[in-house]
Amino acid sequence: MCGLCGVLGGGPHWTDGATGVDDPSARRRERLGRVATVNRVLAHYALRSDDWQGSAYLLSNRTGKTEIVDNLTHLWQAAERMIGRGCDPLDPALIERLGMDRLGRGG
C-alpha cells in the first residue's frame, strides 16, 4: 500500500472512479484505452505498459525488464525506478513531444 496516496493494493484507485461504468466489457475497453493513452506518454521514456489480467499493469523497458503495478500511482513510481530519473509532466520536452505526437496523428 502507498502510505501517501492511501491506495490499497487491489482496491479501486481514484483514477477508476469517475466514469461510473459498471459493465465489465465497458470497463475493459476503458482500461485498454488507458493503456493506449499512457503508452503515448511512456514512449518519451522508452517504456511501455500492458494490461495484466484486467487488474494490474505490466510495465516494461526495451531490454525486457518488467514490473507489475496495481495502478497509475504505482506505475509512475516504477517508471522512475526503471529509468533512474523523474517522470515530470511539466517537462517542456515531454509537453512538446505530446503536442507533436498529436499533430503527427492529425489531432
Binding site: 484505452g33 488507458r34 497509475l72 509512475w76 509532466p89 511539466l90
Partner: peptide, 13 residues
C-alpha cells in the same frame, strides 16, 4: 482517462 493519467503523474512528481 487522460485527466487521470496527467493528475496521477503530477501527484507522483
Amino acid at each position: 482517462t487522460a485527466f487521470g493519467i496527467w493528475f496521477s503523474m503530477m501527484l507522483n512528481r
